[in-house]
C-alpha cells in the first residue's frame, strides 16, 4: 500500500500536467477577464462592495439602450425563427428537388457567416438613402421610403439587417431536427386516422419545440452580442448596448469605469441565460435525433 501511493500520485501529476496548458490558457484569456469585469460591477471606485452600479443601469439612457437592444434581438430572432422554420420545412419535408435543398443549405452556410461590417455595407447599398431598393421604389413606383418614415438606422432597419444572418442560422440548426422526424411516425399517425393538423399538433410540435425554442434563444443571444454590424451601420447614432459598451471601452463615456463593468455584466447575464437554456434544451432535443 505504501509503495503504490507515490506511484499513483506521480500518475496524477502527469495527468494534471497534460491539461495544464489548456487550464492556464482558459484561466488567463477567458475566465479571469470575465471574472474581473463581473467583480468590478459590484464594487465602487474605492473598492467597497456595492450594488449601486447595478441600480445605475436603470438610469434612462442605459435602460433605453437595453430595451432597444432586447427589442431588436427579440424581433430579429422571432422573425428569423419563423421564416427560417418555414424555409427548413420547405426543403426538408416539402418534396423539393434535392439540388435545391443542397443549394439552400450551402447558401445558408455562407449567409450565416456573412455578418459584421460587410453586412452593414450591403444593407446600406440596398436600403440606405441611395440604395438600389430605395431608388427603385422612388423612380419606378413613386414611393418615397424615407418620406414614409423608414430609416435603416432604426429598430426596423436593424431588425431587417440582422435577419440576414438569423434566418440562415435557424435553417442550419433546425433542418437536422426536421430530418429526424421519422416517416414511420407520420404513417403511424395517418393509419390511426389522424389528420395532418393532428399529426403536427400531437407529434411534431411536442418533439420539435425544444429545438425551436432553444434555437430562438440562441438567435436572440447572437443578435444581442452583434457589435460590428451595429457599429458599421449606425456609427454611434443608435443607442444600443453593444455600441454603448464599445464607446465606454474607447473612452469612458459613462465617466464611471465600474458602471462600464456593470453594462458588460448585464450583457453577459442576458446572453448567458439565453445560451444556457439553449444548450440545455439542445441536450433534451438530441434524444429524438439518435
Amino acid at each position: 500500500m505504501a509503495a503504490t501511493q507515490p506511484l499513483l500520485n506521480r500518475r496524477m501529476i502527469t495527468d494534471w500536467l497534460g491539461i495544464a496548458p489548456f487550464a492556464i490558457f482558459s484561466v488567463m484569456f477567458l475566465i479571469a477577464p470575465t471574472v474581473y469585469l463581473i467583480s468590478g460591477a459590484f464594487v465602487d471606485p474605492n473598492g467597497n462592495l456595492t450594488l449601486k452600479n447595478l441600480v445605475d443601469l436603470f438610469q434612462p439612457s442605459i435602460l433605453a439602450a437595453y430595451i432597444i437592444s432586447i427589442k431588436v434581438s427579440a424581433a430579429s430572432a422571432i422573425g428569423g425563427a419563423i421564416i427560417g422554420f418555414a424555409l427548413a420545412a420547405a426543403i426538408s419535408l416539402g418534396g423539393l428537388p434535392s439540388w435545391l435543398r443542397s443549394a439552400v443549405l450551402t447558401f445558408c452556410g455562407v449567409a450565416s457567416n456573412f455578418a459584421g461590417v460587410p453586412l452593414a455595407f450591403a444593407f446600406l447599398a440596398t436600403l440606405g438613402r441611395l440604395g438600389l431598393v430605395t431608388i427603385l421604389l422612388r423612380d419606378v413606383f413613386g414611393f418615397n421610403l424615407y418620406g414614409a418614415g423608414f430609416n435603416l438606422l432604426s429598430f426596423l432597419g436593424l431588425t431587417l439587417t440582422y435577419m440576414y444572418f438569423q434566418i440562415p442560422l435557424m435553417v442550419l440548426i433546425i433542418t437536422p431536427a426536421l430530418d429526424g422526424l421519422k416517416r414511420e411516425w407520420s404513417e403511424a399517425a395517418s393509419v390511426l386516422g389522424a389528420t395532418p393538423w393532428q399529426y403536427w399538433r400531437m407529434v411534431v410540435i411536442p418533439i420539435l419545440w425544444p429545438s425551436v425554442f432553444g434555437t430562438l434563444l440562441l438567435l436572440f443571444a447572437n443578435a444581442f452580442g452583434a457589435v460590428a454590424t451595429a457599429v458599421a451601420l449606425t456609427g454611434s447614432s443608435l443607442n444600443i448596448v453593444p455600441i454603448v459598451l464599445f464607446a465606454q471601452i474607447r473612452g469612458d463615456v459613462l465617466h464611471n469605469p465600474n458602471l462600464g463593468y456593470a453594462v458588460a455584466f448585464g450583457m453577459v447575464v442576458i446572453t448567458g441565460i439565453s445560451n444556457f437554456i439553449y444548450i440545455w434544451l439542445r441536450m433534451r432535443a438530441e434524444r429524438w435525433q439518435k
Binding site: I19, F22, S26, F29, L30, I31, A32, P33, T34, Y36, L37, G40, A221, F224, G225, V227, P242, L245, F246, I249, G260, A264, M267, V268, T271, G272, N275, F276, I279
Partner: peptide, 28 residues
C-alpha cells in the same frame, strides 16, 4: 471525468460576448 468541465469551458465564449472578453483583456 474532466470532460464535462472542459466542454463547459469551451462553450463559455458563446456565453461571454467578444466585446466583454476584450474589455477584460484591456483591464487585466
Amino acid at each position: 471525468y474532466l470532460r464535462p468541465v472542459v466542454e463547459f469551458v469551451t462553450l463559455l465564449p458563446l456565453v461571454v460576448p467578444a466585446i466583454v472578453i476584450v474589455f477584460g483583456y484591456l483591464r487585466l
